[in-house]
Amino acid sequence: MLKREFRKSYTERFGEDFVEKFVSKINEPYPQYLRVNTLKIKVDDLIQGLEKKGFIFKKIEGLNYGFRVVNEPFSISSTEEYLLGYFYLQDKSSMLCVEELNPKSSELVLDCCSAPGGKTSHIAQLMNNEGVIIALDDKSERLKSQLFNLQRLGVKNATTFKINALRVNSLGLLFDKILLDAPCSASGTVWRKKKRLKMVNKHEVLKSAELQKELLRKCSKVLKPDGLMVYSTCSIEKEENEDNVIFAAEELGLKIVKTKYLFPHTDNTIGFFYAVMKK
């Protein structure tokens, strides 16, 4: 199921039984998670309202607004609650990495590669719609979705620019916090998108890694002294993750506070990586 080059790499890095457990898990149905949008509704009010319609939820440990959808009598995205922006469908891994950013309402926060706005809206929620978020992306179609999402979710402290994140310095701003959810090979998303198993290749991984290094370089220059950056990918490749963290520490002088991998068979999420870094 997995290409041989990746099986070898995963076995060497994560152990003998990793591949078997990983492959076994991704053959199970992918779980649905939602984040309650506390900008618009209280957690209990939403959950109770949806439970009356037959939905069943299980709370995500450590996140009082995050839930796994255990029973879905009909598509949850066709509910009024969804259209009214009371919740956002988002993988647990994305919620956890924004939690690590821990944005405060007095801060100036950058969300690079922001579209379609899921993490941006989460940041806004944690900031209680105060302060300022600068959201950048350069893909027109995904930006359309972002504008709809931010509107639906009631986000009023975010400004969206159609700018490639490599040109972030042209804004002339320095940020307290930066979320760099970098474009990547997406090798960790195979549980959700099986076709990635055939599509992802080493050439793509190496090309992504080079772009990510450049993004890290640009972002580190617009991070304030003592500022915090969270770098994340939905990849489980060393070149895009550990190697880039080493680059950030050795070449850019960032202090690595924490790194974490998330896997389908250990964490019930897509494959994901994040690193918390300080300047």
Binding site: L147, L150, V155, N157, T159, T160, F161, L171
Partner: peptide, 10 residues
């Protein structure tokens, strides 16, 4: 801002 944003707020 130096540039005109695509959207600002709600």
């Amino acid at each position: 801002f130096r540039f005109k944003p695509l959207a600002e707020g709600l």
